[in-house]
Design a protein around this nucleic acid. Structure first.
Length: 196
DNA sequence: TACAGGATGCTT
DNA sequence: AGCATCCTGTAA
């Protein structure tokens, strides 16, 4: 089953399936290596959508296959792939990727990156590398939007799971997924953490 | 390698 | 006030 067809109640499975997909924008392509699932509704207080529709999060309630972009700490942007049926909030935060095309352009956009594996090793870094910002909010990933999502070229490999980053609540829910051992994933996430 | 602190603006 | 972050400096 394709992640596009999964209901919001299975956004964690959609997140898993998104690993290995390729996101292209502005002449750079990234292979997704780390993602996090977020759902709306009372079960997930860590989600932007858990208190219902607001001006910021309304895209999360829309149709699957579009981008939900938000600004964080006043200067960074992060992107989610909207999942689930229309009317139910679900999205997958794109936390990290490996630059597989346009690496020269990517380096000029992220001069602070010491190694190529650092270029998109973080949700806001990934956006910088792809040169995407709030203008990409609510745009389609399969069509005429600024960013395009394409299926994996090779099998995704082994997947690890653990608690989400930076969320103080729901720390017991292992809704972060990453490609096991991938160098673009931070060291402390490389091995399956114990779920305390 | 690890941690502390600053930059900066929108959301609640 | 707090935030689904990143970068730089300092210390070990």
């Amino acid at each position: 089953m394709d992640w596009l067809d999964l209901p919001a109640s299975r956004v964690d499975e959609a997140a898993r399936l998104l690993l290995g997909w390729r996101l292209s924008a502005n002449r750079v392509t990234v292979r997704l290596t780390e993602v996090e699932a977020y759902s709306g509704l009372g079960a997930d207080p860590a989600s932007h959508a858990h208190r219902g529709v607001t001006e910021r999060n309304r895209v999360m309630f829309g149709p699957a296959g579009r981008l939900y972009v938000y600004q964080i700490y006043g200067m960074h942007f992060c992107a989610n792939v909207v999942c689930g049926e229309t009317g139910r909030a679900a999205a997958v935060l794109l936390r990290a990727g490996a630059v597989v095309d346009g690496i020269e352009v990517a380096r000029t956009r992220r001069p602070a990156a010491r190694r190529d594996t650092d270029l998109a090793a973080g949700p806001a870094k990934l956006m910088q590398v792809l040169d995407l910002n709030r203008a990409a909010n609510d745009t389609p990933l399969f069509g005429d939007g600024p960013a395009t999502l394409t299926p994996p070229v090779e099998p995704a490999g082994e997947v690890s799971a653990g608690p989400r980053v930076g969320v103080t609540s729901a720390h017991d829910v292992p809704w972060r997924f990453w490609l096991t051992g991938d160098p673009t994933v931070s060291a402390y996430r490389r091995h399956t953490p114990r779920l305390r």
